[in-house]
Design a protein around this nucleic acid. Structure first.
Length: 318
DNA sequence: CGGTGTTTATAAAATA
DNA sequence: TATTTTATAAACACCG
């Protein structure tokens, strides 16, 4: 229970691992990739807890970025000034939190270290990385680069975004919106009501938001509305205005009334585009991913980073 | 030099 | 309780 006078939940450690926090940040970006500094910013903006001991947790975060194969590094193009590379999610990492826990994944995503992919075709990578060239192919920056990096990617889904105003058209196959799709079925139809999530989290979450995105990622994308709605002074009030996300394209997040009862908050099916997506596309299983993975490049053009990102990936068992 | 990445080691936590 | 995953610390390379 939050103590009004004392520290509210906002000051406590969020129930998210660094991996989920980072994924959250990346997913919140329009390009589905962020430089390190922006990942820091995202986390600090919304989680007061991480406004302290920055050296400690940022070191951990960097460790996670390097160590975990689910994160891939995408070099900057020359016309994109700034420090360091962009970080994106590996297209094949799938729904890392399908178990509903953002604290710990069920399995760790590990890529298959294929043969050292020699040539780093950065020109091509940068070519596709460029927005102008992406639009021709309908790719996001991250995906374009990932494709150029020889990382398998999945067929496109119907474009969808949190607030329905984005016009870039493309959504990363594992964009949270898409990931949510399966979770929607799993959670809503699978008999795990949002109340259970609240129980799982051990504290109330803004589970009544107008869509599953904000339910699954309580701190992503819907803050504008949350701040104006009666949410207990819990994590729902991490409540830092979501100014740093979903603003790049000037979009505004519509304020949505938040019913108290989770069941009453279910949006019409039609507003859950993910449901229109082929469920198998959600790729909860490595095999389905492998079957659908598409490389835009000949293997020879693939590029491997230090983590050896290659076409084949697999969820490590045991 | 400071920010970014990588890597190793170990402790702690969560799950099976 | 054993195993797996995550957190933390720390050393070090790289680079603008």
């Amino acid at each position: 229970m939050p103590r009004p006078g004392k520290n509210s939940y906002s000051d406590q450690k969020p129930p998210y691992s660094y991996i989920s926090l980072t994924a959250m940040a990346i997913q919140s970006s329009n390009e589905k990739m962020l430089p390190l500094s922006d990942i820091y910013k995202f986390i600090m903006d919304r989680f007061p807890y991480y406004r302290e001991n920055t050296q400690r947790w940022q070191n951990s975060l960097r460790h996670n970025l390097s160590f975990n194969d689910c994160f891939i590094k995408i070099p900057r193009r020359p016309d994109q000034p700034g420090k360091g590379s962009f970080w994106a999610l590996h297209p094949d990492c799938g729904d890392m939190f399908e178990n509903g826990s953002f604290l710990r994944r069920r399995k760790r995503f590990k890529i298959h270290r294929a043969e050292h992919m020699a040539s780093k075709n950065h020109q091509m990578l940068h070519y596709l990385h460029h927005p102008h060239n992406q639009t021709k192919l309908g790719l996001s920056s991250a995906e374009s680069a990932a494709s150029m990096a020889g990382i398998g990617r999945l067929p496109h889904f119907q474009p969808y975004n949190i607030n329905g105003t984005q016009s870039t058209g493309f959504k990363h196959p594992f964009a949270i919106e898409n990931i949510i799709g399966r979770d929607y079925k799993g959670v809503m139809a699978g008999g795990l009501p949002l109340a259970s999530m609240m129980h799982h989290f051990g504290y109330p979450v803004p589970s009544q938001l107008s869509n599953m995105v904000s339910s699954m990622w309580p701190h992503v994308g819907m803050m504008d509305s949350m701040t104006s709605v009666a949410v207990p002074q819990d994590y729902g009030h991490f409540g830092v205005p979501m100014k740093t996300i979903c603003h790049a394209s000037g979009q505004t997040i519509p304020a949505v009334p938040l019913p108290i009862k989770p069941t009453a908050a279910l949006p019409p099916v039609s507003t859950i585009p993910s449901l229109t997506v082929n469920p198998s596309s959600m790729c909860s299983s490595p095999t389905s991913q492998a079957g659908m993975a598409v490389s835009l490049l000949a293997p020879s053009a693939a590029h491997s980073e230090s983590k050896g990102t290659m076409l084949h990936s697999v969820l490590v068992h045991s």
